[in-house]
Design a protein around this nucleic acid. Structure first.
Lengths: 190, 190
DNA sequence: TGAAGCATGTAAGCAGTTACATGATTTC
DNA sequence: GAAATCATGTAACTGCTTACATGCTTCA
């Protein structure tokens, strides 16, 4: 049976390639830097850490005199090799599952008004997202020359910004289409 | 324990609200009309159909004189009610997991050239996508007044088109950023 | 002293994927 | 007669989420 790649394992390896971290700190890093396109719970993180350790891809280092149970991990040479191998594998096209599109596809079962509310909520979320991206971008551009990493971080932020902006435009266009649908119902067949 | 909503079940209910279908036909409909934002395998479909039947949300009808084992399903009133209830539930913001962003986030571990190839492959896929969306859009606009459904189908196509176009712009901008990174390496610190 | 945050972990369960098995029908 | 497609289903597994358990530290 073809083994699926556990992407969480590679996210851990990737973050540990930047700096040594504990499980808890990994979670925080993911929530801070990757939350727009990745998420991970403790229930996934801790077992994966254990697995990576057994495979010799990471080690527990517990630096700074073992302050109450904090287990800090570092990546091994084998870990770095595994990370690079994964990074080099071509990215397969994947179906991105959007709940909003799923519900709109069957939208004719509801009134246009109800779908308009859905689109409006989506728009509001996207607007809040845009503000965050603008902040991220500003910060990253100001430290862009400090490290190659920053350019790559910026790429992911730019992606989010562009895509979110596109969804805002879509929301406006969709609003118009649904308003037209409403009008046709009021004055049918002309 | 809070029960997760089995979205595949609602996709089935949604499609059956349009017309009666067998498991095999459902798979084909999903691959044809929803594949840009949803996918489902037989291993998920058949057990879910069984479950929906046990709950009384769908019925086996086997119309047209039972031609060799073809089991056609229809939605019940209870099924329609369940579908509407789900459609009305607000859509929660979800993390959309993009493998390409994950890999680019850790891109500094590779050479800029390798990441450029990644972005270029992504761009090519997006370009092919765009052609499909253009075709879908043309067809749907020509039959827009035939059914309310078509407006809602069009919304999902427009979403795909806008977002894909945004990713194309992003690919171009990203290319430039990585080319700059390459140049800086050749003439460092000036 | 009590809340918030730090820190690690387990158990249960669901969604979804992959591979496999089986056989009928259609088409070249 | 072979290949492609139609058609249904099961078994095994993985990835991930949710809920729960536990205890320490910091700070108002």
């Amino acid at each position: 049976m073809k083994k699926k790649e556990n992407r969480t394992a590679f996210v851990i390896l990737g973050l540990l390639s930047h700096e040594n971290l504990s499980g808890y700190q990994l979670k925080k890093q993911i929530d801070a830097g990757l939350k727009e396109f990745w998420s991970a719970g403790f229930g996934q993180l801790y077992p994966t850490l254990k697995e990576l350790r057994e495979k010799g891809l990471i080690e527990a280092v517990t630096e700074g005199g073992n302050k109450r149970g904090l287990t800090v991990f570092s990546i091994t040479d084998a870990g770095r090799a595994a990370l690079k191998e994964w990074l080099r594998k071509p990215v397969l096209q994947q179906t991105v599952k959007y709940d909003i599109l799923l519900k709109l596809y069957f939208g004719a079962a509801l009134k246009p008004e109800e779908n308009l509310v859905k689109i409006d909520n989506f728009r509001k979320q996207a607007e809040m997202q845009m503000e965050k991206y603008a902040q991220y971008e500003q910060v990253l551009r100001s430290v862009l020359d400090d490290s190659d990493d920053h350019t790559y971080f910026l790429l992911t932020v730019l992606f989010g910004r562009k895509v979110t902006k596109a969804t805002l435009e879509w929301a406006e266009e969709s609003r118009q289409l649904l308003i037209n649908l409403k009008k046709e119902k009021k004055e049918p067949e002309r």
